[in-house]
Design a protein around this nucleic acid. Structure first.
Lengths: 205, 205
DNA sequence: CCTACCGATCGGTAGG
DNA sequence: CCTACCGATCGGTAGG
């Protein structure tokens, strides 16, 4: 590589996002100083600011990059043209597995979006809504009666709860892996969906 | 009601914990200043420090108080002497409903325990483990084969994921309430549990 | 119980 | 004149 600068710059920027995501995930966004981010990257603080405008831009870029990956994942599953239940299972498997490689980014996305400014936050939340909508559509296809009772979206959020909560108890180096849990999550949720009695749900209100 | 005199030390302390829990839940522990806590309580900062030793003690008290409530809830359900599935359903209903009244405290318990010192943190985590163990025991009673496959605890954590995640999407003043969702969570989880095929789970590893 | 402060550290940027 | 940084320090605010 004779012209190393732009490649180095892009690589450095990528490495910074990865380090920052890990730190934000571990200590929270307000609990992480730019000095800590810089040190983790082997840079001084002024050097860090050469690559990042400010702390909030760092947070926004982490969130945008991760949500873009999730949207691409949804698109690739949808491109397979699977039927209702098969598509829902494929979405669940893809997401659980994807989170294994991006635990830090995912925790930042779910916990630290609130620290973005209103405009930046709504961009990220719109992306999240699109992902949720894809899952909710698959849920509705599996059990159309739930959609009629307006329960497909709440049920989809329960599914995301199971998945999003996994980082709190599933250790990356533990005996149980994300790949082990992916089919369990799919079986539990799809099995539960099929077992749900919509009349009973309506009677509960 | 004129201010000041009528509030006892204990009342004031209780009010401080409630306000602090709400602020910590909204802005995160490191993102909340003691000045903000004081202002929310209608106190000056030095006055706040009359009731609380330091910021970390405030966090610890919020966590301990909330985990004690959850342990009491488990005990009261266990005292009913219900059978496996009925007990699991009763635990789920009790927890979902309890979280409706303590959303701030619960978010603090799940997100901000990491900011406690090691000794304080492990006290809180021990309390959480006891609660989780009670749920896992109920899960094992419903499907003993899952316990044999060491899946009752991971499945219990998926359940807690559904419940703990609800604060992110279930608005207190929205059309759907915690009371509406409690039986849905119970039906989905118990239905999914009963649908799980253990051989398929073991084949996945 | 308030005003007045401290050591340190915050996010961000100056000159060279 | 540009880039990629450094040592030092900016104005404010943190917990106490």
């Amino acid at each position: 590589m004779p012209r190393g600068r732009s490649a180095t710059y892009a690589d450095q920027h990528e490495a910074i996002l990865a380090h920052a995501a890990e730190l934000f995930a571990a200590r929270g966004y307000p609990g992480t100083s730019m000095n800590e981010v810089a040190t983790a990257c082997g840079l001084t603080k002024p050097a860090l600011y050469h690559y990042v405008r400010d702390k909030e831009a760092l947070l926004l870029q982490i969130c945008q990059q991760h949500i873009a990956r999730l949207q691409a994942l949804v698109a690739s599953v949808q491109a397979q043209g699977l039927s209702g239940e098969a598509q829902l299972r494929a979405l669940i498997l893809a997401f659980v597995r994807a989170y294994a490689d991006a635990q830090g980014e995912h925790r930042v996305l779910t916990e630290d979006v609130r620290f973005l400014g209103e405009a930046e936050r709504s961009v990220v939340l719109d992306g999240q809504r699109q992902v949720v909508a894809a899952f909710a559509e698959a849920v509705a296809q599996v059990r159309p009666a739930l959609a009629a009772a307006s329960l497909h979206k709440p049920l989809t959020m329960l599914l995301f709860g199971m998945i999003n909560w996994m980082f709190t108890w599933l250790q990356p180096d533990g005996p149980l892996t994300h790949d082990d849990m992916a089919p369990v999550v799919a079986d539990l949720f799809v099995g539960g969906l099929l077992a749900l009695q919509t009349p009973a749900l309506q009677a509960s209100t």
